[in-house]
Design a binder for these strands. Sequence first.
DNA 1: CAACACGGCGCG
DNA 2: AAAGCGCGCCGTGTTG
Length: 793
Amino acid sequence: MNCTKCSLYKTAQSVCLLGQGPKPAKVMFIGEAPGHREDDINKPFQGDAGKILDEIFQAIGIQRSKVYITNTVRCRPPKNRKPKAPEIKACRVWLEYELDKVKPDYIVLLGAIALKNFPELKKASISSVRGRFFQIDGYSIFPTYHPAAVLYDENKKAVLRVDLENFWNAVNGKNVTQKNGFNPRLVESKSDLEACYADLQQTKVIALDIETESLNPWGADQITMIGLGTRTTQWVIPLQHKDSEFCKLLNKPKLVRNLGRILADKKVVAQNGKFDTLWIKVKYGVDIKVSHDTMIMSYLLDENTPNNLKFLASTYFGAPDYDLTTDQKKGSAPLKMLAEYNANDVYYTRKLFFLFWKKMNLDFRLMNFYRHVMMPAVEVFREIEYNGIYAQPQMLSDLKDYLAKELKKVSRKLKKYGDINWNSPQQVANLLFDKLELKPLDYTETGNPSTAESVMKRLAKKHEVAAHILKYREYFKQANTFVSSWENKALDNRLHPTFNLIKVWEREESKGTVTGRLSCTNPNLQQVPRDPKLRSILQAPEGWTFVEADLSQIELRIVAMLSGDPAMKLAFQTGQDIHIKTAEMVSGRHMSDFSGFEAKEWRKKAKAVNFGLVYGMGVDGFLVYARDKYEVEFSYDEGEEIRERYFRTYKGLRPWYKRQIRLARLNGYVRCLSGRTRHLPNINSSNKGLRSYAERQAINSPVQGFASDITLMAAIEIHQTFTRDVVRLVGTVHDSILMEVRNDFLEGVVHKVHEIMKNPKLFETLGITPTVPVLAEVSVGAWGSGIKQEDLK
DNA sequence: CAACACGGCGCG
DNA sequence: AAAGCGCGCCGTGTTG
């Protein structure tokens, strides 16, 4: 074929490689462009991506000979380059030609480039449109990932398979989208409400979902409607909507109290139920217990893939896209439309619950963890968010003034270098490396000279401006990220952050972790500087005392448990300081030889050694890490020597690494002592980088995850042990629990909390026997300035 | 104007 | 897309 419509013909081996398959055909697949294998033998999808496609085809029962397969661009682009817009445009005539001959009813678009064939989808990202049908130009168009995406990320394989399976079912008339039992009913009268109550009374499992005017319950915004799903019906009770006459007549607090009473005897199922029940508690003071949460179930079954309701509904039930825009959801949509949306949510939530329940029952350790830890934790964190953490208003305002003053001082000193925006790394780099002709010491990811703190600290020895810039950055960050953000958020003198117990997906964005740790937003309490200026603002109000309970060196203790390394275990069992022990090993000296000052310095170095090396850091990384984080300089040889000595001292570590990697390869996941799993599909990847990354995760995740789980178990027990007028939990930071305790109960509570931290009852429930003691420390008084309770041992 | 990537930096 | 792991938030600068 001779085609010169774009310049690719000059470099491609096979010019204008048309598709393959019957003409006409009911189904057409469109990929990206030929790869080298295809280019050589003149057929589409023959290389590695073709293999993946074949594998999935076989699993589903699609025969290649029955479908037509082609590409968006029909000449191979030069190596490592995607087809460009003009090339896609030029090749469009060939697609028209093929469409005309093949006359497909269905078109599968594989990957982002294939989307560009249709103006309606051109701007969409593949992950936002994948897995559903679009009716365009008389075709049923179904986008999903390109099989080559699986080569880079094994996680995508499952998604691709489910997509194509749903697609194929739809093509063959297997009605996966049929909504059995979808029967939405909007409550518009008293008799409707009575019918709703009657239906709820006779149902055991009830799905709950609310719609709200915003995501923030702490302002004036209201709940617009409550959706309740039973076996037969999705009831929608409007609470606040311009189109509803009924809700104006309602005694809403009474209605919500009634619902609370009915739901108290039921299994309430929700998707991210902490959100819904927190709103209900804030607005109506009613506590509703969530028995099951589909978002948490989905996460525990696979922490890597998205778990928002629309994704799950389309993945498992081939649900059509019923999503509304944010504005519509906040109440701008007509009542009927919003109610139907709400009904869909509860419908799919309930359906998903039964599906996940079956799946989780196949793994009793995971199920136990879910029942005994995750779901109780939802209750605890709903209350933590409800309580909020007290921010002393006077101190906040004083610090604001102080920082403004300091910022002014530094700005004056910086003035003489010109009218520069000191927040701009670009402008700062210009000054340092062009005008002042300092030598760049490091470069950023994108190749620009770095102005990072570690670089600036070293530059400060050559030029005073670097030190001033660092001060400027410090004050600026404190003033904006913390002080002013807190001031804006603490309307009731309390910060009410959101804690993500799991990874939560919002469109393509996600918050939360894959290991089981929590994350925290609005504001993020977990990144408050360890500077008493800031931390001590967070304290307890009059009559109460702030208490922090910390797990001591918990990650290394877990490493000792899991690896069984004798030296590490012995150190912990005999109450030695592990960092001092490592310091002795690194320095080759005995602790008694150190002066007080030396001991402190060596302990610091040893911390770098412990935290760096234990999770598989290389020598190069270790040197940079030690220098930047702990201001310790080692030569390469010293670094190598330390690394060798480290693994000779803790000789159980490397065999443990091997065990973890073997388990991950065998099962596709690794597990925490608590039963939580971490899936690592890339552990068998042919891509060495991805594989090594998965191997390090196989080592780190069970440690990090279990440390976090101990914190959860302790928080749950503290929550269950004390009443709310004695102890109020206000937050957690990975391995520490923050609370306020009523003054007259302080002593007893501190003692009990310390006991709980060291040995939460849930250890026994879950069959966990720590082989290394778990120790904890309790501080009493404002955060970061509390007094350690030394005599608790 | 909003969305996004980047650089930078806070934390365990 | 190769060598600690895990996060969220701020401001700048670019782009559609």
